[in-house]
């Protein structure tokens, strides 16, 4: 099975590569359109900022390429946000795979710290991605300042300041706001389930 991790100007791409290696899978980290197009599974990771990242993707025509992919695609963190229509981060037009916007967390109390960073629970898990996870509300690792509001694409939700959509799915596109590659055993299961799709 050919697994491709899309290489672009985002941080921490290699964490995903390491996580796949722990599952016994050798992925290719590349920005080569041909390799991405013919892969069996594509992972679109990310940590960074929306404006410069979208610019980078557009300049290399990776934006159209990602939207046209037909095999299972997993977006992670910024990857999820960029798959949406619009982000309040720099008021950026994104890929538009999911017809939803991305909003900035607004603290309501002193205790509400932004970024939302650390281990939080996911609930209403409704996707094969969460098969075999024994906890009803498992903990996963988050680092983000922007979020996707509740919407029909949700396959997991999380509460932080407000209830929000922490993972989304439509057709062949899946995406998690959290980092499965940093979420211990739960994260390993999510990645394994994606590989098994």
């Amino acid at each position: 099975m050919d697994i491709v991790i899309i290489k672009y100007n985002a941080g921490n791409i290699y964490s995903v590569d390491y996580a796949l290696k722990r599952l016994g899978v050798e992925a290719v980290v590349t920005a080569d359109p041909e390799l991405i197009r013919k892969a069996d599974k594509v992972i679109f990771p990310g940590q960074g900022e929306a404006v410069t990242t979208m610019k980078y993707l557009r300049e290399r025509h990776l934006d159209e390429l990602i939207c046209d992919l037909k095999q299972p695609v997993l977006g992670i963190c910024l990857g999820l946000q960029l798959m949406c229509r619009f982000s309040e981060e720099g008021n950026t037009t994104c890929l538009g795979i999911f017809d939803t916007e991305v909003k900035k967390f607004m603290p309501e109390r002193h205790e509400d710290k932004v970024p939302h960073m650390g281990w939080n629970t996911i609930y209403d898990c409704s996707s094969p991605l969460f098969k075999g996870i024994d906890s009803v509300n498992p903990y996963v690792y988050f680092v983000h300042s922007y979020y996707v509001p509740l919407n029909p694409y949700a396959i997991t939700k999380t509460d932080y300041i407000v209830p929000f959509t922490s993972a989304i799915h439509k057709d062949n596109f899946y995406a998690t706001q959290y980092h499965p590659e940093k979420s211990g055993k739960t994260g390993e299961l999510i990645l394994q389930n994606f590989l098994d799709l």
């Binding site: 290699y14 390491y18 996580a19 290696k21 722990r22 590659e181 940093k182 211990g184 055993k185 994260g187």
Partner: peptide, 8 residues
């Protein structure tokens, strides 16, 4: 560490 450990 990065290769072997699945937490931040």
């Amino acid at each position: 560490v990065a290769a072997n450990i699945s937490i931040p």
